[in-house]
């Protein structure tokens, strides 16, 4: 008889690695970037670029983007009227700085990569050890369900 692994437990899945300007617990190396030296900033940027390039090489990279911290709140004000805008609100607790999307074999792999990304160098060339949020994407519905 053919030995078969448990097929449904495997699912290649996409995860969002979310970086917060605010709203995450404080990182270990908690010095804001504006107070780093030029060399420290260069080292940080290079680390992020190398990380993305490495993931492209392993076939796990999907997307990476950084966001401007300034944003606007928008809501509909009813049909035929322009949307209402407001803000930015400086007091908003949570603020997203950017993200990376990865396509990996397991949740454990997603956590491993987030850990690596969190170790990007900051002040003093030491790892920042910042908190990143790991969120799974909702997938396409599988063909076989019952």
């Amino acid at each position: 008889m053919v030995e078969l692994p448990n097929l449904r437990e495997y699912e290649m899945a996409k995860y969002l690695l979310l970086k917060h300007y605010r709203g995450a617990p404080a990182p270990v190396n908690d010095v804001p970037m504006a107070r780093w030296t030029q060399e420290e900033i260069t080292a940080h940027v290079r680390y992020m670029q190398d990380f993305a390039a490495k993931l492209e090489g392993t076939g796990e990279f999907v997307d990476g983007q950084a966001l401007s911290p300034e944003g606007t709140w928008v809501r509909s004000d009813g049909e035929g009227r322009p949307p209402v805008t407001d803000g930015p609100f400086a007091e908003t607790k949570d603020l997203i700085a950017g993200w990376m999307v990865i396509d990996v074999e397991s949740y454990e792999r997603a956590v491993e990569l987030a850990g690596e990304l969190s170790a990007a160098p900051g002040a003093g060339g030491e790892p920042i050890h910042e908190w990143l949020e790991v969120r799974p994407f909702l997938s396409e519905a599988p063909t076989v369900t019952e």
């Binding site: 492209e56 392993t58 999907v62 396509d103």
Partner: peptide, 15 residues
């Protein structure tokens, strides 16, 4: 089909 960039899939295949 797998909603990843072509470069990523190319790397996955060559690996």
């Amino acid at each position: 089909a797998y909603l990843v960039p072509e470069a990523t899939m190319a790397q996955r295949i060559s690996r």
